Simulated assay, not measured.
Amino acid sequence: MCEGGGVERTPRLVCFDLDNTLIDRDGAFLRWARWWAESNGLGEAGVEWLVAHDNGGFRPRAELFELTQTRFGLAAPVDELVAAYDEEHPLFAWVEQSVLDGLADLRAAGWRIAVVTNGGTVQQTLKLEYTRVADVIDYACVSETVGVRKPDRRIFELAATHTGTTLTNGWMVGDHPSHDIAGGIAAGLHTIQIGNRHVPDAPTADHQFDSIAKAFPVILAG
């Protein structure tokens, strides 16, 4: 019971993907690629090659830098290139103020917010800190840290546990149908897809918007 005799409601959960949902991951990669190619004397052709072989971040970093090492004759070991990338790439990420404001509005309305992201601990944590997204959420669930990846339902259960919520009447917002939307549906969450990424045989979200700014009012009204 809450003060005044009313029933205290359990806070509800909103899970957000990070890359290409809250932040423009591909834009940040392009910024990094331009800086890195210039630093290594690879020119614009090097930038184009990196973007073409990045596969939107889904190519494993060790594989990407092994290919890069071979293609451009780099002397640095692959593990050093990957480690440097994990600390460099986040510095090229940014977040729109409207996104931070939208997250703050959700929290002010009583929602608990978790970022649920597949990725490495170092890189994803630095992105959250550098963009200040970490300041306006309740918990960050990074797959490498917790040992579970989307679309596994367990990663959403961890987010609920760490935010003091349940999955009931919660939301999952993300750009990838097979990871974010399929995972959210498996966890019993309402779903919103950001962008128009298409994956054959992947489930359809409850809502689809071209901008995350359009998702906040829908969640607040839910």
Score class of each variant (00 low, 15 high):
M1K: 14
G6P: 02
V7Q: 12
R12V: 05
C15F: 00
N20D: 15
I23Y: 00
R25P: 00
D26E: 15
D26Q: 15
G27L: 11
R31D: 07
W36K: 14
L42I: 04
G43I: 12
E44R: 15
W49C: 13
G57W: 03
F58T: 11
A62H: 08
L64W: 01
F65A: 07
F65I: 02
L67W: 02
T68K: 00
T68F: 12
Q69S: 13
Q69P: 00
R71N: 03
R71F: 03
G73L: 08
A75Y: 02
P77W: 03
V78H: 11
D79N: 11
E80T: 04
W94Y: 02
Q97V: 05
V99N: 12
L103S: 08
D105L: 11
D105K: 14
D105W: 00
A108L: 13
G110Q: 03
G110L: 07
G110H: 07
I113R: 01
T117W: 03
N118A: 09
G120S: 08
V122S: 05
T125Y: 04
L126V: 00
K127R: 11
T131I: 11
D135V: 04
E144N: 08
E144D: 15
T145I: 01
R149S: 14
K150T: 05
A159R: 04
H162Q: 14
L167W: 11
G170Q: 06
G174L: 11
D175N: 15
D180R: 00
D180S: 06
I181G: 10
A182H: 09
G184A: 09
L189Y: 13
L189Q: 08
I192H: 04
Q193E: 10
R197I: 14
H198R: 10
H198W: 07
H198G: 00
V199K: 01
A202E: 10
F209K: 04
K214R: 11
K214T: 06
V218M: 10
A221V: 00
A221R: 14
